[in-house]
């Protein structure tokens, strides 16, 4: 038993240190790895000894956990996600938002930080864009809140849509990518987990530059060392102007 554990640990260490394995494309129904020591994560299942992919994406083995990083697909809400949605309908006790997800989401009056009285359309009307947080996902009905910092109605600025699977790359490790784009352009940017990005700056040129940068990251999300590429991208922009 102990010996077995040792072997597992050795294997895991080798995996971690050894030439950082290039992530390979996984195909639904295809075996990713074989062995009892591996654990199936998102997008995978265990079938006897094998870990089998259940969707199309990049197979990622980190330590013992095997998962498939999706390359495509629609947004499925999770509790805690910050999302950007457009008001689709106003009911007597809240708003229905379109989150670019297959399920409709509801923002209740009680989840508003302000005291709301009378006609709800005086606060948020159809077509308004709000940054919200997902508080619960029950039976596929999504409840939202705007009781937090930075949430609420988004005035002015521009909205762009990217694939929700590219959001982690746009944000970068611990927000490094988005911070750089913010600093370079001087724009305020909110990236919704549902792939809606809101950009607002004092000048339209800055906003367009930020938009270009976000789309650049989203389209090149597979490249390694993307942060440096984006840095070069901004340098090129600056050079071109002079």
């Amino acid at each position: 038993m102990i010996a077995e554990k040792k072997i597992i640990k050795q294997k895991v260490d080798e995996e971690r240190e050894g030439k950082k394995k290039k992530r390979e494309i996984a195909i639904p129904g295809e075996k990713i790895v074989s062995g009892k020591e591996y654990l199936p994560g998102d997008g995978t299942v265990r079938e006897k000894d094998d870990i089998v992919a259940r969707r199309f994406g990049l197979a990622d083995i980190s330590g013992r956990l095997v998962k498939v990083i999706p390359l495509s697909g629609i947004y499925m809400p999770r509790v805690g996600n910050i999302v950007i949605g457009r008001v689709e309908d106003v009911t007597f006790n809240g708003w229905i938002l379109d989150l670019k997800s297959p399920y409709s989401s509801f923002l209740s009056v009680s989840e508003c930080p302000r005291y709301i009285k009378g006609d709800l359309t005086e606060y948020y009307d159809i077509g308004d864009v709000l940054a919200c947080k997902v508080v619960s996902v029950k039976h596929k009905s999504i409840d939202l809140t705007i009781k937090d910092r930075g949430l609420g109605k988004l005035d002015k600025g521009l909205i762009i849509h990217i694939n929700s699977n590219k959001v982690p790359r746009v944000i970068g490790r611990e927000g490094s990518m988005i911070k750089m784009i913010k600093d370079e352009t001087g724009c305020e940017i909110t990236v919704g987990q549902n792939g809606v990005v809101w950009i607002s700056g004092s000048k339209v040129e800055d906003e367009l530059k930020a938009k270009e940068a976000v789309l650049f990251v989203a389209n090149k999300s597979y490249i390694e060392g993307l942060t440096d590429k984006v840095k070069k991208f901004f340098e090129g922009k600056r050079g071109g102007k002079k």
């Binding site: 259940r54 969707r55 199309f56 495509s72 697909g73 699977n165």
Partner: peptide, 10 residues
């Protein structure tokens, strides 16, 4: 598969 829909196999 390309649409990222969970599938058992092809």
């Amino acid at each position: 598969a390309n649409a990222g829909i969970p599938m058992k196999q092809l």
